[in-house]
Amino acid sequence: MEESESMEIGPRVILWFDEEFPIKWLRGVEINESAFFAILVGIAMVIFAIVSTRKMKRDPKGIQGVAEAIVESIYNLVKSNMGVERLMFAPLIGTLFIFLAFSSAIGLFGFRAVTADMNATFAMSIMIFFVIQGAGIRKKGIGGYLHGFIEPYPFMFPIKFMEEFTLPISLAFRLFGNIFAGVFIIELIMEGLHWVSESLVHLPIPIFQTILPLPLNMFFDIFEPFLQAFVFSMLSMAFIVKGMSKH
């Protein structure tokens, strides 16, 4: 993403280690917002998992009940979309869903959403690409996998080959586009409200930015992240099943 003079639309570098930093191999490393908050969301997920399973009881209560409800609903979703025999993909899909939802919803706290960076969404979709190919090879064997490319007719090989590679691109751009559009629209609205409250009230108090953007936040920071994470995981499930099935 190119940067323009007027408005910054890429992630900012928020953490860097200069030449005097005591640890040698960290010198010159720059960490931008996306990487920082992705690591933060990952750490939060790990902490939640540890805390919720620390003192497990037979009848779940409190935080353990929440964790069990999440896990059970993810397993049910995977079971109804991929079948019981492919339940081993449930941890992958569940982690993907939770990570994508919360890393996009981080805009609620005023930070920049992780998935508004194309690198993050492409990382996810390339991982899904390798999972699809690996699951296909493991299920059908290398011969059967390669035979799948020329399955109905050999002249369809270019189309089938292209199909495999357009999938991660469209997955990544769909997620990036939705979240980035939300971030951009909220930024525009905030700028406009800033102008309104400066020119109407003549005080450095952001009156109009407090309550008015809340419906927008509700749509772009709560509804849209969960919807897009759901769509991402649904599509990856569908394509994993398609990659594993024989024609």
């Binding site: 323009s4 951009f184 919807l227 759901f230």
Partner: peptide, 27 residues
């Protein structure tokens, strides 16, 4: 329905990205 609507929404989101880039980045 939700999955289908999100798929249909994608093309208009792509259009929105193109128009944002045209206005802001001015390639």
């Amino acid at each position: 329905l939700i999955v289908g609507l999100a798929m249909a929404e994608t093309s208009v989101i792509f259009a929105l990205i193109i128009s944002i880039l045209l206005v802001v980045v001015n390639p």
